[in-house]
Simulated assay, not measured.
Amino acid sequence: MNAEERFWNATVDELTNGYVYDDLNDAYVCLLCNEGFEDGIIYPIDGTLYEAKKAVKRHIEDAHTSVFNYLIRLDKKYTGLSVHQKEILDYFKKGFSDKEIAEAQGGGSPSTIRNHRFKLKEKEKQAKVFLTLMKLLHKSSDKKSDNKFIHFHKGAKMVDDRYAITEEEKNKVLSTYFKQGLDGELDTFPSKEKRKIIVLQNIINRFEHERVYSEKEVNAILKGIYSDYVTIRRYLIEYGFMNRSRDCTEYWVKG
């Protein structure tokens, strides 16, 4: 399971913790960056020895500050929250009173902040009902795995019907364009947007999360996939699969 699938398949409790236990690899895996900590191994961090479970918690604090800090900065298409709502939630998390928040935002009315607090509580109730409905729906009518939609990457830009891709569609496209197998070369680069996304999703799996690549290293990997590696590299950036530094010397998977 790749990082995107692990993140979106996580339960609410697992997302709250920021990590999951990977039974296959006997490891605790950070949901925010996919770094793993193998059970039974002792990890030295800043002069202290940690078992795997405590090590992943310490990692989240050091690398991401907190799960709340990471999630609140996700794009609106993932949170459904406006910039102002995120600011309000951040103040609530820090323990600010309604009066303090109103003053911090330019001297507004505490009653306005209380109204925001009420609306967010209503949104929480609606979210619980919606999650329950979707869980019941999956149990009763979405048993065929081929009809399930694939998860799109967290760096996806302009999410629209191009990302409405089922497992069946994905498998057909991959078998068409990667005739030598998923780890083989790309036969041709598709012109249709939805197919591009599917192909790029497969290509990005050739790169490691949390590793910074030079342009030369990126080119070397892509050359083994497709002759026009420059086009592939450009689309990986354009579609939000990768980030790069301003001087184009460093590249990394967008998480």
Rank of each mutant, 00 (worst) to 15 (best):
K93Q: 14
S97P: 05
S97L: 06
D98W: 01
K99Y: 13
E100K: 14
E100A: 12
I101N: 00
A102G: 09
E103N: 05
A104W: 03
A104V: 02
G106S: 14
G106N: 12
G107H: 06
G108M: 12
P110M: 02
P110S: 03
S111T: 06
T112R: 14
I113W: 02
F118I: 12
K119V: 12
K119G: 07
K121I: 06
K121G: 07
K121Y: 05
E122W: 08
Q126L: 13
A127P: 06
K128M: 10
K128Y: 08
K128C: 03
T132M: 04
L133E: 10
M134T: 08
K135C: 07
L136S: 05
K139L: 03
K139S: 03
K139A: 06
D142Y: 00
D142H: 00
D142C: 00
D142K: 00
D146A: 12
D146W: 09
K148M: 00
F149V: 00
I150W: 02
I150Y: 01
H151S: 14
H153V: 14
K157H: 15
D160Y: 14
R162K: 15
Y163F: 04
Y163V: 05
I165Q: 02
E168K: 10
E168N: 15
E169A: 07
K172L: 02
V173E: 00
S175P: 10
T176D: 07
T176H: 03
T176E: 03
Y177N: 08
Y177R: 05
F178R: 12
K179S: 11
G181F: 02
L182M: 12
L182R: 13
